[in-house]
């Protein structure tokens, strides 16, 4: 399994934001994308996730077998928005994504316990605080299996204890042979991660 990005350029509204990016990740490797606001971190992640067309270059994913033919099928995308419905309870939200995304791994209860929210699974998502919402979104990564995690500012709104817990989850994912690309401006507690520094302009 290998995720290779070659000579990738991304644009927003016709303006080139970054160009000529190349990197390759093997199982168990993580890449931290850092840089100032507007450097194109989110655009890069959305392009890799297949949500934005690449201006040039390509993203290749190999070795995923029939289950994961390309990056889009093989990745979890955690963007700025959590993708949860405020009118449904936390458990209903997670149960829906577990069924819809397929490849179920942890049960909803176990996933909630892993992010420390097992007490409040019955509450409507709309009642939760910002940090709790983020942790629910992180629990989504656990309920269905994807080898590649694309994380956009994953720890925004989290307290120190939750950050530590999330680092642990990421380390477990890497130890299982997963791949992580995370855009962040905070250290994520991944000791051996490579870093891609994107400059503005």
């Amino acid at each position: 399994m290998r995720l290779a990005v070659e000579n990738l350029s991304g644009e927003r509204g016709g303006e080139l934001i970054f160009s000529g990016l190349s990197f390759a990740l093997d199982p168990g490797q993580a890449l931290l994308v850092t840089g100032p606001n507007g450097a194109g971190k989110s655009t890069l992640l959305r392009t890799v996730a297949g949500l934005l067309p690449a201006a040039s270059g390509n993203v290749e994913f190999s070795g995923g077998g029939e289950t994961f033919p390309d990056v889009q099928a093989a990745c979890h995308y955690l963007g700025h928005l959590n993708g949860m419905k405020t009118a449904l309870t936390v458990e209903e939200n997670l149960a829906f994504w577990r069924t819809f995304l397929g490849g179920p791994r942890l049960s909803v209860d176990d996933a909630l316990e892993a992010v420390g929210l097992s007490e409040i699974g019955h509450l409507p998502f709309g009642y939760l605080s910002t940090g709790q919402r983020r942790r629910t979104a992180i629990a989504r990564l656990l309920v269905s299996h994807r080898p590649v995690w694309l994380l956009d500012e994953p720890t925004s709104g989290l307290d120190h204890a939750s950050e530590a817990r999330f680092s642990e989850l990421m380390r477990t994912h890497l130890a299982d042979g997963g791949i992580i690309i995370a855009a962040t401006h905070l250290p994520l507690g991944l000791g051996h991660a490579r870093e891609l520094r994107m400059g503005a302009g």
Binding site: G50, L51, Q72, G79, L81, G83
Partner: peptide, 15 residues
């Protein structure tokens, strides 16, 4: 608005 659409679009290989 809540980001679900990205996930629905992203799982278009599966559904």
């Amino acid at each position: 608005e809540d980001g679900s659409l990205d996930l629905l679009l992203g799982s278009r290989d599966r559904h």
